[in-house]
Amino acid sequence: MTDKQSSLKRVKGTIVISSESCKGCELCISFCPKGVIKLSDRLNAAGYQFAYLVDNGECTGCAVCALVCPEVAIEVYRD
């Protein structure tokens, strides 16, 4: 492993999606590089299927989802 790859060890990150703000536009899902966001079958109060994080530790906290989210519904945490 070159030096660069080793420094890319697991950068832990996570996101918090406000399920009530989400309007199910699925943009975060289509742009997430790790594909760790899915659309829930359940509906929020407004009747939208909301997005949620599949918590398998893959999220790197890159914030792309928050960047594209029109509803400012996603908060991003990172180590």
């Binding site: 703000s21 536009c25 939208y48 928050a66 960047l67 029109p70 509803e71 996603i74 991003v76």
Partner: peptide, 26 residues
Amino acid sequence: MKLIYSRPKSLKKAAFHYCPGCGHSV
């Protein structure tokens, strides 16, 4: 973990009336 991305201060907490995926919101 540190919070690195959240709602800007000068953006009110109100939910947008814009359609899902609208450019105005962003």
